[in-house]
């Protein structure tokens, strides 16, 4: 009698692992498309910056395309109104109407807070490269705020300009919503946590409407972003994402 070969089992195991891995990338891609739109997205948001001594509200709206272009304009408070940010490729531009100056934000300012929040300028620039710039690994399933989630580890690929050492994302199993993410630095220390909640429907798409950013070393600081409106896959003319438009947009 021939001894059963263990090769098929090994092969099966091998494929299951690779399918699993492919699955993780797929999950991240789906989650990314869900939030950022397959082609484009338009959003209106309120941001509350919470500090031990004060709270501050900023409202803004933004347009973004799959090609990595995005335009954000501040709508409130009055002192900040009209400030706009243009992301084009890996450059971030800022237009300030009070001084009538267009400023290219230098690399040294990438880790600084955007508009004084816990959002860094880098968050705004790099958001869409979760799919392309990282290796994805499914760690298992966990429940976050009562929602069943895939727990996925993201490690940056070589030769990519990524400031994080590691990311862990929790993406809901049914809707592919990014419910929670942990950002770690190169030494493996937790830097900040993004926490999503209050799932609502925008443009026939169920999305978490509140995102909280909690820096790990300053637990009293917090930034809370509330999405008030969102539309997806509208087509925008190329003129939207230009420096000329930054000065006009309201």
């Amino acid at each position: 009698m021939k001894r059963p070969s263990c090769l098929p089992i090994l092969l099966a195991l091998f494929f299951s692992v690779s399918i699993y891995a492919q699955d993780a990338t797929e999950i991240v891609r789906k989650a990314d498309a869900k939030f950022n739109g397959e082609q484009s997205s338009y959003s209106e948001m309120n941001m509350t910056i919470i500090r031990p001594k004060y709270q501050r509200n900023i409202s803004f709206k933004g347009w973004a395309t799959k090609g990595g272009k995005a335009l954000t304009v501040i709508t409130a408070p009055a002192k900040e109104k009209g400030q706009s940010f243009l992301k084009s490729g890996s450059n971030l531009w800022n237009w300030n109407p009070t001084i009538q100056r267009l400023i290219k934000l230098p690399p040294s300012m990438m880790s600084q807070g955007w508009m004084g929040s816990d959002f860094t300028n880098d968050d705004i620039l790099k958001e869409s490269s979760f799919v392309k710039d990282y290796r994805h690994k499914l760690l298992g399933e966990e429940t976050v705020q009562g929602i069943r989630c895939y727990k996925i580890e993201l490690t940056p690929l070589e030769n990519t300009a990524v400031v994080w050492g590691k990311l862990i994302l929790w993406i809901s199993t049914d809707d592919y919503l990014e419910m929670k993410s942990n950002f770690f630095d190169e030494d493996g220390y937790l830097v900040k946590t993004h926490l999503s909640s209050e799932i609502k429907s925008f443009d026939n798409r169920r999305l978490p409407s509140v995102i909280e950013i909690i820096p790990a070393d300053e637990p009293e600081n917090k930034t809370k972003v509330t999405i008030t409106a969102m539309r997806f896959n509208e087509s925008y003319s190329e003129d939207v994402f230009t420096q000329q438009n930054m000065k006009r947009v309201k």
Binding site: R51, R56, Q100
Partner: peptide, 16 residues
């Protein structure tokens, strides 16, 4: 001269 910076309670300060 153009001045830019951060104002009281995180407001943005800018002026010419």
């Amino acid at each position: 001269v153009v001045l830019m910076g951060q104002g009281y309670h995180g407001t943005s300060a800018a002026g010419t």
